[in-house]
Design a protein around this nucleic acid. Structure first.
Length: 541
RNA sequence: GCCCCGAUAGCUCAAUUGGAUAGAGCAACGGUCUUCUAAACCGUAGGCUACAGGUUCGAUUCCUGUUCGGGGUACCA
């Protein structure tokens, strides 16, 4: 409808010989301003050198007959034009939703296109933290939003089980293993001190016995990485998150892709050697200073494989590439981008999403999270505490640009009043009504007189349902699932209000049937939205 | 120093990407269950949108500066 009005306005302005301006057509906050409102007269005031209200009056006369379902059109305020539609317009959507079900207002703009979403990508040095959880849920829901729009999505996890960090992990397990054998061994400086290292050491001992030599470090590393990786996968599975591809950084080395990138950058004249290290001229791309790609030890920095990996992503031919990183990674991508451009690749189809940190508080006190030190709460512990639905919902409640404050005590205490239950309760209520109608021997409400749907609460509810398309479009363009979360909350609110005021199943069979169709439509839409967020929609609570 | 994010009700966050009287939840106070689930609904109270300028018909939103918080600025990842 908004699109229709917009093009009718453009058409009418043309007929009146007025210039094209950039104006908006939107749903106003306040119902007193109609169902749809436009500021076009305000934007025309300057070029036409006339009062906005005067322009609005002329335009209204020109456009009135062109808008279907129009009940009223008037000018208000500084010169806004407000459109009000007939009830029949809203009623028609109930039928539409019930026919299209999950495809209501779905446009497959991504049909035939491929997109890769890389997220989590934690190295197997410890269990997933609450910070990883945010990224996991965000990434998965973004993937679901893309799928709903018809994209073919590859969920990818990039990890590294080699290098310095893994050596520290191996040494830490070794130390705990030796301690289990009653020996004096210290966790090395910079090692991992978490309780889970003990568990791994115990399992290791069970598997390999007591006689593993200290210089067999690789065996400790491999065992620990495998164990940890399994727990990471299990944690994600609990949130209904699965990756299609686990991309191992090691493959970039073994396949020669690292060397290839170095060679290409060198040939293009972007590399130089200094102090035994290989430097990349990032300053040519506007960076403050150049970066080291290969240390003087011969070991690459993390930037080099990152570059090779992204080159590989591009080579694999995705139409869209989405990287989700924590805020601490914001400095690395510009270097990757610079390198890709140096290699002659276009990076326009890569979108990097940075989410801010999760701040954890317990009893009002901030907890600094670190995997290395043991003072973190794991994602698993959080799921134990609050349940998968609550955890997913909580992560999707706010924009990724803002810090997430997570009070553990509150999450526990609030389990009764948590907003996710508000949505689920609305869904369960609707299921119960439909069930109840059958008990009252209203077997079928397939045919109903929808013109009976007239009350303010009913029309308000339908009006919100119509917004679904805009919300999904916004989710797609911004890649922010939060818009859907907030929308579903508003939908649930509108339903709860309707429910409180109007009884669905009554002696009035005709009215009951019309309302049952309405309830069925709301239920369908709510369940669809919850599925996209990855939150379950229970039939009973 | 430089770069990124934030600052809105006592607390946690919204505000349809520049619109009309800035909204929810929690916390406080009061009201609504004989009828489809009260995990709900209604009401009261709570604000110089961090501060100072600018842009225009119009700014929480855009620009500049300042202050405060978070994250970067590694031959750590």
């Amino acid at each position: 409808m908004i699109e229709t009005i917009k093009s009718r306005i453009q058409e009418s302005c043309g007929e009146l010989g007025w210039p094209q301006t950039s104006f908006i057509v939107e749903r106003p906050r306040d119902r007193a301003f109609g169902h749809v409102s436009t500021n076009v007269a305000l934007t025309l005031a300057r070029p036409l050198k006339k009062a906005p209200r005067e322009i609005a009056e002329v335009l209204i006369r020109q456009i009135r007959e062109k808008i279907p379902h129009l009940a009223a059109i008037e000018t208000a305020g500084a010169g806004f034009i407000n459109f009000t539609f007939s009830a029949a317009y809203f009623q028609s959507f109930v039928t539409q939703i019930r026919e299209k079900r999950c495809d209501f207002q779905r446009d497959f703009v991504g049909k035939g296109k491929t997109v890769q979403v890389e997220f989590v990508s934690a190295n197997p040095t410890g269990p997933l933290t609450i910070g990883h959880g945010r990224q996991a849920v965000l990434g998965d829901s973004i993937a679901r939003i893309l799928e709903w729009h018809g994209y073919s999505v590859t969920r990818e996890y990039y990890f590294n089980d080699a290098g310095r960090q893994m050596r520290m992990l191996g040494l830490s397990v070794l130390a705990r293993y030796r301690q289990l054998l009653g020996e004096e061994w210290q966790i090395p400086e910079g090692g991992y001190e978490g309780e889970y290292i003990f568990d791994i050491a115990r399992d290791f001992r069970k598997e390999y016995g007591d006689a593993v030599a200290a210089d067999d470090l690789q065996r400790f590393i491999d065992f620990a990485a495998r164990q940890i990786f399994l727990t990471i996968r299990d944690s994600l599975k609990r949130l209904d998150i699965r990756h299609d591809i686990y991309y191992n950084e090691k493959d970039l080395y073994s396949s020669g892709k690292i060397d290839e990138v170095l060679k290409e950058l060198d040939e293009a004249g972007y590399l130089y050697h200094e102090g035994g290290a290989t430097w990349f001229r990032t300053s040519r791309f506007g960076a403050e200073k150049d970066r080291v790609l290969v240390k003087n030890t011969g070991e690459p920095t993390y930037r080099l494989p990152d570059i090779a990996y992204h080159k590989e992503k591009i080579r694999r031919g995705f139409d869209l590439i989405i990287d989700i990183f924590g805020a601490d990674h914001h400095a690395t991508y510009p270097d990757v981008k610079a390198a890709l451009e140096a290699l002659g690749y276009s990076t326009g189809h890569i979108r990097v999403l940075l989410h801010q940190f999760v701040t954890l508080t317990r009893d009002g006190e901030k907890i600094k999270m670190s995997t290395r030190k043991a003072n973190f709460v794991t994602l698993d512990e959080l799921i134990d505490l609050a349940g998968a639905d609550v955890v997913r919902y909580f992560y999707l409640m706010r924009s990724m640009d803002s810090h997430l404050n997570f009070d553990i005590a509150l999450a526990q205490k609030q389990s009764d009043e948590n907003p996710v239950f508000y949505l689920q309760y609305a869904h369960a209520r609707m299921c119960n009504i439909l069930l109840h109608s059958r008990e009252k021997h209203i077997d079928s409400y397939e045919t109903a007189d929808l013109s009976l749907l007239q009350e303010a609460e009913v029309l308000a509810l339908i009006e919100i349902m119509i917004e679904f398309r805009d919300v999904m479009e916004l989710c797609l363009s911004s890649l922010e699932p939060m818009y859907l979360t907030n929308y579903l909350y508003r939908l649930a609110t509108a339903f709860h209000k309707f429910y409180t005021v109007h009884r669905v199943v009554t002696e009035d069979i005709a009215l009951s049937k019309a309302r049952l169709q309405l309830v069925d439509a709301v239920k369908t839409l709510l369940a669809n939205g919850m599925r996209i967020l990855g939150i379950s929609a229970p039939e009973k609570m």
